[in-house]
Amino acid sequence: MIVTTEKLTKRYGDRAVVDEVSLSVRRGEVYGFLGPNGAGKTTTIRMLLGLVKPTSGTARVLGETPGTPKALLKVGSLIEGPGFYPYLSGRDNLRVHAARRGVHKTHVEAALEQVDLVGAANEKFRRYSLGMKQRLGVAAALLGEPELLILDEPTNGLDPAGMADMRDLVRALAAQGQTVLLSSHVLGEVEEICDRVGVISQGRLVAESTVEQLRGDTVLLIRADPIEKAHVLIEGSSLHGDVLHVRETDAGALVRALVHADVDVQEVRPLRRTLEEVFFEMTGAA
């Protein structure tokens, strides 16, 4: 495991912003940390980076205590938007960051290339578009070849093209074997990119599994006539208006049984819950 937390909790007064969160991120995976705004994602991530001290519970990042130089030097991060000096160029900002990380400045050019910012490297950071700022943040996170990349809402505020660029970038990094912890409230993003997902709601981790497992079993939708007869014939089916829902994977056998019983089968198709539906169920968001 690259990241593990055990009952990690952060309280501000009586309010638990993060409440006994136990999660684990495996080496080489893209882990989606999913939750509505204010669910506790950023506070959890800040605790993993040592920016915020937990009230109770423990966390280990690459086997180290969060926030220690040993841990931080193996982690690259972009937390709630990039924090750079507006009067410095992108290149100089990375040079400053490289000096802090103890990375030789020659690595700066490689990082700029990786995020496709070489052409704009000499422009002042304040003149960058939001997408360029985010990419520079990723470049800074990549300095020093970290074992773990933590990206907190990396597509926040980006236009659709910028979001697609950022997703492509994360996918490319994942393809190279980079472990990524990506927090987001954009379900499609998590569904597209992530191997496993942790869902956090009101400070509590309500689920942690693969996207497939979260969506649950496939349900077959069957439209048939007469529907009542089909409902009686198929054990465990549930009637939803004029269609049946059946937890069954062998659609062929079902259709044969219905046809043998003189039931007209009009439509059979898999009905899968989207991650969005699962998410709304779990978080109570609407």
Binding site: T68, F84, P86, H97
Partner: peptide, 21 residues
């Protein structure tokens, strides 16, 4: 305001080293 402390403190140095810098 710029968020550069956040960038500094996640870069690697101990907080006391960052402040000494």
């Amino acid at each position: 305001g710029w968020g550069t402390w956040k960038t500094t403190l996640t870069a690697g140095p101990r907080r006391v080293s960052a402040m000494a810098g």
